[in-house]
């Protein structure tokens, strides 16, 4: 009879609100170029969403704007606009819309778009992002955590695993070299409320996997690229992790409630 506030649309708009300060910081940092890239990304997302709305009945979701934001924030400066549009298209369509839109996707669309971009321009480095960008992420992240949208377990597991693995590999200084995109990617790509693992324990495992993958990938590539691929890989493992944890949980229940 009464309904809570957390409809999919509310959650989507809160994600957008959390992204807004990041967009401002990015535009202040990159100038009109940043604004153009963001506007182009948003236009592309909107175009695909209306196409899928008309033909497949997939409702447009505000949260998809994060894909455009992520590409605008992290894409290398030298990448031409048409490639930005292409990457956003790939993320929006293959990452989200073909599965039935945001909320039914099993991978983070931003991670899909950025991995695609990274593979198509292998020689260019993603924007590292300064501490200002990291600070712009924080208020949104706190708001999302307080509203129960951002899984804190993923953040905690990611930070711990990254720190431990980087210590083991002797890579700690490199982590601090790109604080902006690292924080941005953890909040908006790794700790995705929809596409990450669905069981509480699975979220810890997935966060730890993403952190460890980031450290290992850092040995071969820059930190932003490492964290993007780590988010994608950990997302691919999430359903497997969930299956394992559900199987364990059901077995544990069976043992606990065994009756003669």
């Amino acid at each position: 009879m009464i309904r809570g506030l957390w409809t999919p649309d509310t959650v989507g708009w809160l994600l957008v609100a959390a992204g807004a300060p990041v967009a401002v910081a990015m535009i202040l940092d990159q100038g009109p170029d940043g604004l153009i890239r963001l506007a182009l990304g948003l236009a592309v997302v909107a175009a695909w969403q209306s196409l899928f709305r008309f033909n497949m009945g997939v409702m447009p979701a505000p949260a998809s704007a994060i894909t455009a934001l992520a590409v605008a924030v992290m894409a290398p400066h030298e990448v031409p606009l048409w490639q930005i549009g292409f990457a956003v298209s790939f993320g929006a369509v293959v990452g989200e819309l073909i599965f039935g839109g945001w909320g039914r996707n099993f991978l983070n669309a931003s991670a899909v778009a950025l991995s695609f971009l990274s593979l198509s321009v292998p020689n260019a480095d993603f924007v590292a992002g300064d501490a200002g960008l990291a600070l712009a992420v924080v208020p949104g992240a706190i708001m999302l955590a307080l509203t129960g949208i951002l899984p804190i377990s993923i953040l905690a597991a990611f930070a711990t695993a990254l720190w431990v693995a980087a210590m083991a590999l002797g890579l700690t200084p490199q982590i601090l070299a790109a604080p902006g995109t690292l924080v941005f990617a953890v909040v908006f790509l790794v700790a995705d409320p929809v596409a990450s693992a669905a069981t509480p324990l699975g979220r810890w495992v997935q966060g730890a996997l993403a952190g460890a993958f980031t450290a290992f990938l850092m040995t071969g590539t820059s930190v932003p690229q490492a964290v993007v691929f780590a988010a994608l890989l950990a997302g691919l493992f999430a359903p497997l992790v969930d299956q394992g944890i559900i199987a364990l949980h059901l077995r544990w229940r069976r043992v606990r409630h065994a009756r003669p």
Binding site: P8, R53, M56, G101, T147, I149, P151, V194
Partner: peptide
């Protein structure tokens, strides 16, 4: 085209 039912978004 009828819209699909809203998805389930996991929150706390």
């Amino acid at each position: 085209t009828e819209p699909r039912p809203a998805p389930v978004v996991p929150t706390l």
